[in-house]
Design a protein around this nucleic acid. Structure first.
Length: 562
DNA sequence: CGATTTTGACCTGCGC
DNA sequence: GCGCAGGTCAAAATCG
């Protein structure tokens, strides 16, 4: 954990120590710091209680060792005496004065002393060994206790999530389907807890592959009937609206297949079990959202993916229309996003992501994709229960990285649990040096950026990110953000996007490399942030591949229903 | 001409 | 049951 914190602090200075934030949120920051300290102190206390005893013992041992070391010196002294005696022997031999009886007596005495000292040394050696083993045992016990607490916390979270999944599953679920309820739970079992999931019946090989949600579904589908192709990447399709769009969605168009729950049912008629698995798990994934707030004058932040707009609606309480985009980098990619400007500060662009990509991504897109996927999974696996006041793994994450209190917000309230990454706070310019050249996002049209990095490493990246989901740092828990989550920044800083520090391509490459190589999720998160910031700036400073769509025109589409 | 955007219609869930 | 709001579809329009 310390490593992750160090890595993050070294690589990406999260914009927490902003002056405005300090002014605005001194209490929360202080609370966070205090909590962290408290946490640490508690841990230290706990550890100290053990350590103290150990130390006392150690001190005792040292105090006991000290005379014994003097005893060891005594032994040496004895040896020295022996040597002296040897000399005396020699002297006796040389002199030929001492009698044999005296020599034997003195030798016996010395021998006895030596044996006694040797015995003491052996005893002390044994005691030292015992103490060492005790210290080791205490350390192991502490470690195990910590791990057990973590696992218990995770399991409680999963238990709540699993219950919710069961409730959200389609009605009339048969007992056979219930057998597979483990799969959504397994899907949720990410990170360290997955290693100790006693319910999971997956093999170790499956576990090694279970880094991504896709992989989980792959496993699940393989386990059930081997229809890999259907479950693999359609994780978001099956439960959406319970497949009631029969008339429209049975169109033969392949593009809509990814979103057609009936297609899943039709193409995978082997069992309702699979469907239930997919539905419950995909429902949870479907519901998880990652919202990114960034300042950008462009209609859309550049996240490295290709999007196609499929709808626009006026949302209540916001004069700016909400645009709906779907990822078009692959046929049937379930990822969608909503783009809307903040009603309070229209320089803030709110982008909400749903789902996981089912295709390789360019590095720039992978940063965001891995971030959203990990954040969503983290949200589903951990924070929902935290909203219920059971556990709060994010507190641990905050302890891991206490410097990013204002960066992310979890909203576990209905209708959708949402992680909001607030990038509107200006990073410290010293921490985000401004590059001399404008940032350019490598786009998928450039194949050199495409396959080599993403294809083989994508599951690993997801897996690493998900494995470290508990390290998703800087998540500020919000019990009831609700619709106000997008406006949790009470006083947005007036900072044009052009003023935002951007990152050079080297920086992004480094960040991307950090994602692909570093198992630290915070690094991945920071890399995504850097890509966002760079993309936003790119939009404002250069001509990009973005469409000419302009949401700010606000073509009133309120009469959509009318 | 294909791809993309626009936009009215449709569907669903939820609250009353 | 009704109305509202969110989300999606798909034909038409537009763009390159």
């Amino acid at each position: 954990m310390a490593d992750s914190r160090n890595i993050t602090n070294n690589m990406f200075q999260f914009p927490v120590s902003l002056s405005a934030d300090k002014d605005e949120l001194p209490s929360s920051a202080a609370r966070e710091v205090d909590f962290f300290k408290e946490k640490i102190n508690r841990a230290d206390d706990h550890h100290d209680s053990k350590t103290t005893s150990v130390m006392v013992k150690k001190e005792n041992s040292l105090s006991e060792v000290a005379p014994r070391s003097s005893a060891a010196l005594n032994v040496n002294t004895g040896l020295h005496l022996l040597t002296a005696n040897t000399r005396s022997d020699q002297s006796t031999v040389d002199d030929g004065v001492s009698s044999d009886a005296d020599d034997k007596r003195s030798k016996n005495i010395e021998l006895a002393q030596l044996q006694l000292e040797l015995q003491k040394m052996n005893t002390e050696n044994q005691r030292l060994k015992d103490m060492l083993s005790q210290v080791t045992t205490n350390y192991s016990a502490l470690q195990m206790h910590f791990v057990a607490l973590m696992q218990q916390q995770q399991q409680q979270n999963h238990g709540v999530e699993s219950n919710k999944d069961q409730q959200e599953t389609v009605e009339g679920k048969s007992s056979e389907e219930k057998k597979h309820d483990v799969v959504p739970r397994q899907f949720m079992d990410l990170g360290p807890s997955a290693e100790t999931d006693e319910i999971s019946n997956s093999s170790s090989d499956e576990r090694t592959r279970s880094g991504t949600p896709q992989n989980h579904f792959e496993v699940a589908s393989t386990k059930n009937n081997g229809k890999l192709e259907m479950v693999k990447y359609d994780q978001e399709n099956s439960t959406f609206r319970d497949g009631k769009r029969i008339g429209r969605e049975e169109s033969p168009e392949s593009e809509s297949q990814g979103w057609n729950p009936n297609k899943v049912q039709k193409l995978n008629p082997a069992g309702s079990a699979n469907k239930a698995i997919e539905q419950s798990a995909e429902a949870t994934m479907r519901k998880a959202r990652v919202s990114v707030r960034a300042r950008s004058e462009a209609p859309m932040i550049t996240d490295g993916c290709q999007w196609r707009k499929y709808g626009q609606k006026m949302a209540k309480g916001n004069p700016c229309p909400r645009a709906y985009y779907r990822c078009t980098m692959a046929v049937g990619c379930p990822v969608r996003k909503q783009v809307q400007r903040c009603a309070e500060d229209r320089t803030i662009l709110i982008t909400t992501y749903e789902g996981n990509h089912n295709h390789p991504l360019p590095p720039a897109a992978m940063a965001m994709a891995s971030t959203t996927a990990a954040a969503a999974t983290m949200l589903l696996s951990g924070s929902m229960s935290s909203a219920d006041g059971i556990m709060n793994p994010n507190l641990l994450a905050r302890a891991i990285l206490p410097c990013s209190s204002s960066m992310a917000t979890i909203s576990a309230s209905a209708p959708f649990p949402t992680v909001t990454l607030d990038l509107t706070h200006s990073p410290n310019p010293l921490q985000f040096p401004r590059p001399p050249t404008p940032f350019q996002v490598p786009f998928p049209g450039q194949p050199q950026n495409f396959a080599p990095v993403t294809t083989p490493q994508l599951p690993q990246v997801f897996g690493q990110a998900l494995y470290n989901q508990s390290k998703f740092s800087g998540l500020q828990l919000s019990q009831d953000m609700g619709s106000s989550q997008l406006g949790h920044q009470t006083q947005p800083q007036v900072l044009h996007s052009g003023q935002q520090p951007s990152l050079s391509q080297d920086t992004l490459s480094a960040a991307t490399a950090a994602i692909t190589s570093d198992p630290n999720f915070t690094a991945a998160l920071a890399a995504a942030i850097s890509s966002i910031i760079g993309g936003a700036n790119n939009n404002t400073t250069t001509t990009t591949n973005n469409t000419t769509n302009n949401n700010s025109n606000a073509t009133n589409n309120t009469s959509n229903r009318n």
